[in-house]
Write a protein that binds this DNA or RNA. Sequence first.
DNA 1: ACGGTATTATTGTCCGACAATCCGGCTATC
DNA 2: GATAGCCGGATTGTCGGACAATAATACCGT
Lengths: 242, 242
Amino acid sequence: MNVEFDQIALTPAYRRVADAITERILSRTLREGERLPPETELARQLGVNRSTVREALRELECSGLLERRPGSKRMTVTRPQHRAIAKDVSRALALHDVTFLEVWTALTEFEPPVAESAARSRNAADLEHLAAVRARFDAENAATDKAVHHTAEFFRALGAATHNQVFALVHEPLIELLEPSLRDMIDQVAQARSRIAAAQRRLLEALERRDPEAARQWMARHIRDFRKGYELAGIDLRHRIG
Amino acid sequence: MNVEFDQIALTPAYRRVADAITERILSRTLREGERLPPETELARQLGVNRSTVREALRELECSGLLERRPGSKRMTVTRPQHRAIAKDVSRALALHDVTFLEVWTALTEFEPPVAESAARSRNAADLEHLAAVRARFDAENAATDKAVHHTAEFFRALGAATHNQVFALVHEPLIELLEPSLRDMIDQVAQARSRIAAAQRRLLEALERRDPEAARQWMARHIRDFRKGYELAGIDLRHRIG
DNA sequence: ACGGTATTATTGTCCGACAATCCGGCTATC
DNA sequence: GATAGCCGGATTGTCGGACAATAATACCGT
């Protein structure tokens, strides 16, 4: 008889604890909003020390499956926030020395469909929100930070207007990566602010008319404009971001 | 004199420790591949207990900034792996009850540009890899798991062939989300395998000819085919994934 | 210089402790 | 009866120390 041994599970306990709790959340045995049992209780149930449980909890906390509501002790089960996930994505890309050219190319291909889809799926509330964001850009774009922030918010509002979570989540990192270089460009190119304002106006009009084709085209121009701005500002597109 | 108090920093120590180390990595003070100092040393330097350091390390580990090389004790600084990040993204989307319709819509818009870009940027090695993946699909697609896996791998290889990290990272979650429902479909639709094989052949030919337009169009058909398959299999597109 | 061994360093896990503070119930007041 | 304030118990954040297992390193003989 051939007696072979399986590879012993070398995964540390904190990891297996994390996996166990994750599994409960993904299978929706633990539902969103529900409070997690106390650490001591978890430790007792799982047969490990509280310190081990705590290490596992840190892991779940950072992957966005648990959160501590402000002014609350116990942790509650939650779903990862799109914004937080997108931050991780853009951080990863930045660490991998992604260039602005790569980001711009992706924007060129991905944003026009987002705009097109938004023109199809937007509802009255989306329109209102977009108009508000655009108004804020027009009102306060003197400070670089404000201008960049409002520009990004307009993109985000478009993503939300598609009512497609995949669109919204996937284009969020692109916006995140656009911001730092936009900050550099917007101050060196005099006409940048007015061109952004114009693009936002056209896009909003297209959305109001529910005109997907126009939305797509104005977005395409908007993105091309960014590139022109970078070239005018003399920024090297192959330079890494962040 | 107006004596106002700042909001007391209520962020727990483990979080601030994590932030401190993260900052060091992002600023590249700690470079990739470098080994982190021992936990006791970190605790001493930061003036906290080792348990606190360990909680912080779990956080960095799960965000992919640190990893433990197999058969190694100390942790080394690393960059988040695209695959791991994509897993988080698709998990988040699944938890948010994304529907197959949303995924399919995103595929419709995002994959053709990826194919187009791949046709432009592919090099000989990419072509070879793609051919190998396609050959594997042709050779072993009897088992559902294999067929699904090879289909996904072909998409991944296309993403890599764009030589654009943003493309590659952004479409990865889409593939991840496609897999489970593809698994359901592929067994119920007799012609699914041959249609996938045909699409892969056409795509590969387009890439060989460096024909972006053909690549885009064949990909668009490929994605449309998926939808037809789901409809033939009687799968509700509005059903949530996962 | 090198392969193998002994020593040390480091991690994974446990235990116990304590202050801060959140939570839930109780009481007093209106 | 509702509400505000109070109080004790429950829970978390952080600490200190301990120990076995094993990776890392120094050492040593050839």
